[in-house]
Structures are given as C-alpha cells and as structure tokens.
Design a protein around this nucleic acid. Structure first.
Length: 842
DNA sequence: AGCACGCCGACT
DNA sequence: GTCGGCGTGCTC
C-alpha cells in the first residue's frame, strides 16, 4: 500500500474531501485506516486522518507529497469509527473532519508547531571546518542567533523570537538566505500531568551533617531540611506538601537544590479520577417477573449476536439500572464490550458507584468534569482493551471498543444527547448506527420515552430504527408511586398568598421537618429572572453585541452575556432614567432559599445550581451531605430531578411546574411532562411513602394532569394528536437552517434567496408541497424569519425551517443548495448552518 | 482555516 | 518610486 487518502484538519467546505498522499516506505507497516498523521498541505503542515489505503497512485495525478509524520503507533480510530464519520457527514450535513474530531479526546487535537534549525548545507559547512562567518555573516548578533539555534539543534519559532525579541527581521533574513531553515511538526495539546517532587540529593547521614553545619541565618532552609530528614523513609514528597506543611516558599526549597542537598523533579502522575476510592462490590439482585421478562428478551437478542433495538419503558424505580447491569454482565461474558450513555447531569457518583461496584476496574468513566488529561487516560483504557465497560455522556457513544455487544442509553428522552455544536449529532441515532455496524443490541431506557422513540416502536415505521417496546409498570421494591397533588397557584393569589409557597406545600414542609424526613424542591429555572431590571422604566441591561439580556453572576458580581462572554459591572442606578429602583434578582434558587429561611427559621437547605456546583467534586459533596442528613431540603434546578435515590425523601415540591410551557417550542408540553414525572419519582422510593406537590398556574394542562397521574400513555396519545395536526415530529422531520451575516438587509435577501432556490429544486424533483395536502414523500419550507436570538456577536441571524417526511434526500438537497449559494455569493461573510433534527428551536 | 499571490493608496 | 492594505484562490 503506497497511497493513503487523508481527511485534513481544515474545517472548510472546499477541503471536506480526501487528499492523496504517498506513504514513505518506512511508514508502510504502521499506517492504517484511522491513523493520525501530519501532512504537508499548501504551505504548512496539518493534522489529518487516514480514511483508506490504496495500492498505487490514480493515473493522471502528478507527483504526490509524502506523509510527513505518523502521530501515534496505534491508530486512535478503529476502522468502524472512520466509516461512521462518513455516515455522520451525510446524516448531519457536517464536515467529515468535524465528525472525526468529535470521536477522539481533545488532547489528541494536534496543531503544527514551527521549528527553526540551522540549514543542512550550513551544518555541513560547519562540519567541513568552515566558519559560520565564511558564509557571509557579518553581524555579531546574526552569529549569536545561529550559534544559539545550532547549540540546541531545533528551536520552536516562538521560543526563538522570545529569546531575540528585537531581531525578528534578522531571523527572517537568515531564513530567506537559507542559513536557517524552518520545519513544522504536529504537537499534541496533551501535556502529561506532572508533579514537582522533592527528594534528598544526598544520603541521610550527609544531610544530617549538612544540617548541623548550616548557616544560622538560613532558618527556613534548616526547617525544610530537618522536615525532609524526618520524612526520609517516605521520600520523595510532593512540593505542594512541603510548601503547605511548612509555610515556606518555593524559593527556599530551590536554594536547597542549588546547594545540592535536595532534588526537585517533575514526576509523571498517572491520573485516575477515582483513585483511592473504595467501591463496595455488589452482587446481582434477584429480578422481579417484569425485570426477568425484559432481561430474557434482551439476552436472547444478545445471544443471537445480531443488531436489535429495545425501547425499555419502565416507571421510575422499576429497576432499569439492574437490567443494565445484568445484561452488561452477559455481554462481557460473550467477550464483547458495552457502552452506557447517561445524560451529563445524571452522571452522578451514585451512578458511577453502581457500575464500579459491579464491574470494578473494568469500567472507564468519561464526563465533562474530567480534565483533558484524565479523559485521555480513560479513553486509552478503552482503546487498549483494558476495560470492558464505558460509561459516559453523549460523546461516550464513540468509545473505541473493538467489538461492541451492547449500547445502553439511559434517560433516552434527554435533550442533552443532541449536540448543539457542529457536528450536531444525536447520540441515540449514532448509537443505533454504531450498534448496527457491530451487530450489537441497543437498549433505550426511560420512564418517559421521547415521542420519537415511542412512536417508532408503536408504528414500526421509522426508517432509521424501529425499536421493540418492553415495559415495566411496577416499582422493583413493590412500593407505590407517590401521590401527586396539583396546587392551583391562581387560587393562592386569590387567597392573598403572595409567597412562592402554596399553603399546602408550606404545611407539607412543616410536617416533614417535624418528623425529620427529607424534602426535595425543584425550581424550573426558566421564567425566573437573573437579569437587572429598572422598576421605574423597565430598562433591562442587554448585550451590545447580541441583543439579549445580560445575566447576573454572583461569583464575579457582574453582568455577563451567555453568548459572547461580554461583561460589565452591575449598574447602581438606571442608565436610562437615573432611577435608583434598579434591582437584580438573585438566581431563582437563591430567592427560594431566602424565602425558606424566612418561613422556617433554622431550616437546613442545600442549594444545587450552576453557582454552587462549578467546582470540581462539589456536586458530589452536596449530595453526600444530603444523604448524610446534614440538611432537610435539597433545593435545585433540573439537576435534582434526575436519577437520585434518597431513602428518606418523602416530599417533593415543584415550585413552578409550567414555566417551560410558555416557551415557543413544540416540545414544551413533552418537556414539562418529563420533568414532572422524573421529579415525582424521587419521592418515597423506599419504605416511607412519598408525596408530591406540583404548583402550577395552568393546572388544567394535559401535561400537568397526566404527569400527576403517572399516566404516560394518556399523555402520549394527547400529545401525538397535537403533533399530527400541526405536522411536527414524529410525524415529520425538521431541518433548521440558520443564516448569519453582519449586514441585515443583505442577510434577509440571501436567506430569501436560499429558500427560493431550495423550493425551486424541490419542485423540480417533485418533492415540494404542503404536508397538509400531500401524503407520502414531501417537503415544505417555512420562513425565512429572524431567529429567536436575532443577533449574536454582532452578526444578525435569520432562519428557515424545512419540514419533510418520506424516503427523499432532503438533507442532501439542503446542503447542496447551501454550498451552491456559498459558491455563487461572492460575499464569504455569509454563514449557513444546518441543524438536522433540531432539539432547540431557539 | 491559513497562507501567498496580487493589485491599489500613503509614505520614505 | 516602495510598503503594505486585505480581496480571492488553493491546498494531494
């Protein structure tokens, strides 16, 4: 194999194809499909991925460039992932390189670094005994530069220009004249984690002697040395510990090093985020009848070793996790590996503990809280076959296992499985595709399956997947689902209760406090203000670049834009009218916390929201405190609704059930139903019976009512009716096309242009029409209109929505029209982005 | 995305 | 007369 086709790391439309390279003879044994390479590309070196190998050069092409370097001995991508990237390119209308990059840890995203060395002819001359001066070097500083470079063989360009900041011109001239030469190598972002470690450089006896003879005035150094001697059997010790243990500065230790008494070394630390933690081993639990039935169906499919998808609809507490664990066990016994995807937010220590407890160190865990290096290490465990199970959020679907037997997607309905940045993939769909490649089984688990999945299971008509529906209606421990009361908040207002707690919820909390039982309070975050508003004139601080309201950040005590990061101070008086009645409202949860403290003096509250969980491990700490009953109330946003299991929680309160219902999103009802069902499931999971209060301003809404009755089926029936009438998924598919440009009038024209072109081409193919009037294969375009976020980072935004159904390549067409336009329109400042199957319509 | 090539304004 | 502005075109 002499030729490699390579996808280069240049994210542009015109480079979204393979480029051919010669494989140098010495690399032939090592280059494989999936290899990461450095290749010359134009006038620079870029990273790329080998996607196929070929015997010889295609005729008609003149001289190919050779691959410059091979970046890893083992290709970071197995061939099935390379193939999957090609599939993603079509499915999500993204650049293939974007798909490939999404599959590997960011630590492996290399960039070319420029190095300077003395040119070959020049070194040859030096070897031949000629002086550098003979080659026309007249200036002393020129000579200094060349000698500097020569003395260290190769110097990164950045380092050289830092060393000779005034001589940039001279360096350029030396390069031009060929005295110095430049080469580029790909350098990984990864830095190995090291720790400064201090050790004695001499024997204990010598050190003691040195200590005795120490100059009296170097008191601090004496202390350090004495301390090190005391610790001598346990050396080396981390520099950090020396500094904090003795309250000395690094300079003190450094002086000891200069004296030759101690050494300070960089020691590589192996990162294990769960190091030092004991996981209680757990044995498989006996299964209930329902569980047994589900287990047998899945295992039957596993044993066939063929592809199959199951939608596991089980009420909260029905024991889905135990099914996951036992089917994974079977999968491992077949010598295949398993991937478990969970939403980021519920990738809690509780969850990890259960898997680590059952499978021990055969488990790799990947989540966003890990540092880049930690993630890379976990990823390597998978790639090198040292683990059998990978648990992770969305991107875990790319775990580079050799032979996958099972992919589990827990809380299948969660929107976090859809990546909002390019590549805008949905982990559920990717999982199904990947399982198909491997002949593997997929389990989609949820108490509230997405309408897409449920409908696909019921109608068996989806092209991409038609899961088999498995249901569990009962809780594994036999206890009942909690009783849910809907509280009509309009009555509270009429009853002159202006508090955010209804009288019922108030009483409920008081009762639990008395009995020493625990409470979970959920605040549906949206709808609560975190912005500054003037009460006199209604002024709201907005971002000058993006036209959206600025959010108040407590930590930095300033106002910040979510989209572009712009920040400014908190205004004291209103910039518009000068009024002093300008107020910010703390985050929603803060307000609730304050009110709780007022109503129930002495109440112990743990607040969990973005403000209190940014620090690493804080999430875990807070939950542990609550579990240890250090608090009466766990108060939080969405993150308290998912997957938590506390035996003493008997009351769940939802402060505002319906704040999401007013959002302009066709999934608003579905999301409300899911959230209410999930949070209700936190109550009464063990011996004590649970009770739930749902406060609502729209208590008659079907999502609230069906959630209160734990009636998924009725909700789905009603919701599907709406979707069918309004032509929304699952009765059609959507593509959201967003256009951005600095100039509004031009943007509008171009967006209209796009929809017209798209419509024209669709007509030619006989696809165009209203979804109302036509059955079967059809597509329609809505818009263009201004985006809900009409301006971000000084760029205006317009969008149009494509609705379509059937077996027609609308994705390909939408992309084609976008590409044609970008070609035709001279103005490159127009950006068109496609979101296939969007989750957020904002 | 870079980076070089190429064709028009303000300076030694 | 040149230095350098950034429009546009290419990268195996």
């Amino acid at each position: 194999m002499e030729i490699a086709k390579v996808i280069v790391d240049v994210p542009a439309k015109s480079t979204d194809r393979t480029f051919d390279y010669l494989i140098p003879a010495e690399m032939r044994r090592w280059i494989e499909v999936g290899s990461r390479v450095g290749v010359p590309f134009g006038h620079r070196t870029v990273q790329g991925f080998v996607t196929s190998l070929h015997e010889r050069q295609e005729p008609g092409r003149f001289k190919l460039k050779p691959i410059q370097e091979l970046l890893d001995l083992v290709p970071p991508l197995p061939p099935d992932l390379v193939e999957l990237a090609g599939w993603m390119r079509e499915r999500y209308a993204c650049g293939e390189i974007m798909a490939l990059q999404a599959m590997i840890p960011t630590a492996l995203k290399g960039k070319a670094e420029r190095y300077i060395s003395v040119s070959d002819t020049e070194s040859q001359a030096a070897q031949d005994g000629l002086l550098l001066a003979d080659t026309g070097m007249e200036d002393d500083s020129e000579r200094e530069i060349v000698l500097f470079v020569q003395s260290r063989t190769q110097v990164p360009l950045g380092q050289l220009s830092r060393r000779f900041p005034e001589q940039a011109e001279m360096i350029k001239s030396l390069l031009r004249r060929g005295v110095l030469q430049e080469s580029q190598y790909i350098k990984d972002k990864l830095q190995k984690k090291t720790l400064k470690a201090v050790d004695l450089a001499v024997s204990v006896e010598e050190a003691e002697a040195a200590l005795a003879a120490f100059p009296a005035k170097a008191q601090r150094q004496r202390e350090v040395l004495a301390w090190l001697l005391e610790l001598s059997p346990m050396l080396p010790v981390a520099m950090k510990e020396v500094l904090s243990g003795l309250q000395v500065s690094a300079a003190t230790v450094k002086s000891l090093e200069d004296k030759g008494l101690v050494t300070i070394d960089d020691v590589e630390v192996f990162r294990d985020p769960y190091r030092g933690r004991d996981f209680k081993p757990t044995a498989p639990l006996p299964l209930t009848h329902e569980q047994q039935h589900v287990y047998e169906r899945v295992v039957g499919q596993l044993d066939e070793r063929t592809h199959g998808v199951f939608l596991l609809h089980g009420v909260t507490g029905s024991g889905k996790t135990e099914i996951y664990l036992q089917t994974i066990q079977r999968c491992i016994e077949q010598d295949r590996q398993a991937i478990v995807l969970v939403p980021e937010i519920s990738l809690t220590p509780q969850m990890v503990e259960r898997f680590k407890g059952r499978f021990g160190d055969q488990v790799a865990v990947m989540h966003s809280r890990l540092s880049a290096g930690e993630r890379y290490d976990e990823w390597r465990k998978i790639r090198e076959g040292r683990v059998k199970v990978a648990i992770g959020a969305r991107s875990g679907v790319f775990a580079p296992f050799k032979s996958i037997g099972l992919i589990i997607i827990d809380e299948e309905h969660e929107t976090s499985y859809k990546q909002e940045e390019t590549p805008k993939y949905h982990a559920r769909d990717v999982a199904v595709k990947r399982a198909d490649q491997h002949g593997a089984v997929v389990i989609l688990g949820s108490a509230t399956p997405s309408l897409e999945s449920y409908h696909a299971a019921r109608s068996q008509s989806n092209d991409e997947f038609a899961p088999l529906l498995l249901e569990m209606h009962h809780r594994a421990l036999g206890n009942k689902l909690p009783e849910v009361h809907i509280v009509d908040m309009r009555n509270e207002l009429r009853g002159n209760n202006r508090s955010m707690f209804s009288r019922d919820l108030h009483q409920g909390i008081a009762a639990r406090l008395e009995k020493g039982e625990q409470i979970v309070l959920l605040l549906n975050r949206r709808g609560y203000s975190t912005f500054v508003m003037c009460r006199s004139c209604g002024y709201v601080s907005t971002c000058p670049n993006c036209d959206i309201s600025l959010t108040y950040h407590q930590r930095s005590n300033n106002m910040r834009c979510h989209y572009c990061g712009y920040s400014e101070g908190v205004p004291e008086t209103c910039p518009e009218c000068g009024s002093e009645h300008i107020r910010y409202f703390g985050t929603g949860t803060q307000r609730v916390e304050e009110e709780l403290a007022k109503l129930f003096p002495g109440i112990r509250v743990i607040r969990m929201d973005v403000d209190t969980t940014t620090e690493k491990g804080s999430h875990e700490k807070l939950l542990k405190q609550f579990r240890d009953k250090k608090a009466d109330v766990l108060l939080g946003t969405q993150m308290v609704a998912k997957g938590l299991d506390f035996p003493d929680v008997t009351l769940v309160g939802v402060i505002t059930a319906d704040s999401a219902l007013n959002l302009p999103d066709f999934r608003a009802a579905e999301k409300t139903f899911q959230l209410l069902t999930q949070v209700a499931g936190r109550a009464g999971r063990h011996q004590l019976p649970g009770e739930v209060f749902v406060q609502s301003y729209t208590p008659d809404h079907y999502s609230v009512i069906h959630a209160s009755r734990h009636d998924y089926l009725s909700f789905v029936r009603e919701e599907l009716k709406h979707r069918r009438v309004l032509h929304y998924p699952p009765y059609c598919r959507l593509i959201l096309v967003t256009f951005t440009h600095e100039q509004l009038p031009l943007l509008v024209r171009l967006a209209e242009n796009y929809t017209a072109n798209l419509e024209g081409k669709a007509r030619q193919r006989g696809w165009f029409g209203s979804l109302d009037k036509f059955t079967g294969d059809v597509m329609d375009v809505l818009g263009p209109v201004a985006s809900p976020m009409p301006k971000i980072k000084n760029r205006y935004r317009f969008q149009c929505m494509i609705k379509w159904r059937g077996n027609i390549d609308v994705i390909g067409l939408a992309r084609e029209v976008a590409d044609d336009m970008a070609d035709a329109v001279q103005n490159q400042k127009l950006l068109i982005s496609l979101d296939v199957d969007p989750q957020m319509l904002m």
